[in-house]
Amino acid sequence: MRIRLRFFASLRERLGRTEEVREVPTGATVATVWELLKRERPELAVLERSLAFAVAQEYVDKTHPLQDNDELAFIPPVSGGGHD
């Protein structure tokens, strides 16, 4: 099935892109896709504990099952207040 991935903030910087479409096996969860990304880019692993995921504009946890044409967003925390 096809999933649209969207990347925000520091993850966008690290990957150098804002989105991509990829094929994932039927039955894949958010965790499946994240593991795929981590395998390709092991340096992303450090982000894992503080990363939020959203499917179809809704915050979900990693066990959330994906469906064909879902949009999966990866949202790292952002600290800035434009202060420093």
């Binding site: 520091s10 450090v46 504990r49 503080s50 790292p76 925390p77 600290s79 800035g80 207040g81 420093d84």
Partner: peptide
């Protein structure tokens, strides 16, 4: 509820390090 744990220090750049569009704030 959104971010139970903070990112490791130094991982997420501040405005001083990452820059910020002046209008954004």
């Amino acid at each position: 509820c959104l971010y139970p744990e903070p990112p490791p220090p130094g991982l997420v750049p501040s405005c001083a390090e990452g820059g910020v569009l002046g209008i954004l704030p």
